[in-house]
């Protein structure tokens, strides 16, 4: 660059970005990056958050291996991950349904998207009332069809699925809006060309539309996986981990161990957090790798 020969003592091409980055980077380091390292460190200690921390090495992790509640949480996380991905095809389906130009369709689109804007706390409350054995609408509906009423959140087998269903509601709305925006940008000429070649319905969707929706699908994957692993609010509101701890996931179990009425076991909690972080890291690495490839492709 020509500025390299600048006679000034400070090269503005270097000092400007440095100064502009400084506050943001410092803040981010202080509150995000450094705490990650600190959590790793704390996970090797036994610590109640107040007194002296006692070095225990890997003992927290050894104990995790035998912890039945940890196993349940991990297993539930897997359920969340797999079932949450249903939001992607469901969102695509609704987007295809709404991708028309009839009067009032804009309002319909907004109203379908609406669940995503509401806080998960309220979604959790809304669904826990929806599931109520006596007062809930769900049972009001299924009993009119002559079925036995069910207590979704009171049943250790059903409860997790009930919570995941609540989570799928806003997540599907998010995926829907991603696909609606994506469908807007689909190249009409390619569709026409496909029609001339006799492609219709499913074949058209699979061979012509979906490849063009790839950016939308990628973001839908990212936000859905992150959302699944972050699930905390809904569980805390709807079941508080119960019944009998059957709806715990790692994020909730960690909070329960480290910061609730069951005691302040910061070290053990941090060990759980580290496990969750490492699971997330697999996906983060994949996302970053995909983005990095795109950066390279964009530059050359």
């Amino acid at each position: 660059m020509s500025t390299a020969t600048s006679t000034r003592r400070w090269n503005p091409q270097i000092t400007t970005p440095l100064l502009f980055l400084l506050p943001g980077v410092l803040f981010f380091l202080l509150y995000v990056i450094i705490p990650i390292g600190q959590s790793f460190n704390i996970s090797f200690y036994k610590w109640d958050g107040l007194g002296e921390a006692e070095w225990v090495g890997l003992r927290n992790y050894e104990r995790l291996m035998q912890d039945r509640a940890f196993e349940v949480s991990l297993w539930n996380n897997m359920k969340w991950l797999v079932l949450y991905l249903l939001a992607i095809p469901a969102g695509l389906f609704i987007a295809l349904f709404l991708n028309q130009t009839v009067t009032g369709i804009r309002l319909y689109k907004s109203l379908f998207f609406f669940p995503f804007v509401i806080s998960q706390v309220v979604v959790g409350l809304v669904f826990s009332w929806f599931y109520l054995p006596r007062e809930g609408l769900l049972n009001a509906v299924i009993t009119t069809f002559g079925m036995e009423p069910i207590n979704v959140l009171g049943d250790p087998v059903l409860a997790t699925y009930g919570v995941i269903a609540a989570g799928l509601w806003p997540q599907t709305a998010y995926c829907m809006i991603l696909y609606l925006t994506g469908l807007n940008a689909v190249d009409p000429e390619q569709i026409e060309a496909g029609r001339l070649d006799g492609a219709k319905g499913w074949r058209m969707l699979w061979h012509i539309i979906l490849p063009q929706l790839r950016p939308a699908t990628f973001i839908a994957f990212v936000v859905t996986i992150i959302g699944a692993l972050r699930s905390f609010d809904l569980i805390s509101i709807m079941t508080n981990g119960g019944p009998f701890g059957s709806t715990r996931v790692l994020s909730f179990y960690m909070f329960e161990k480290a910061l609730s009425e069951y005691g302040f076991r910061m070290g053990y909690g941090s060990a759980i957090a580290v496990v969750l972080f490492l699971i997330m890291l697999v996906f983060i690495a994949y996302f970053l790798w995909s983005m990095w490839r795109e950066e390279r492709a964009g530059r050359h």
Binding site: F28, Y31, M254, A273, F277, F287, L288
Partner: peptide, 16 residues
């Protein structure tokens, strides 16, 4: 770094 940090689970930050 910004992107990766944005994706981490909250629990890894909680105690610190």
């Amino acid at each position: 770094m910004f992107i990766a940090g944005n994706f981490v689970p909250f629990q890894i930050l909680m105690v610190p």
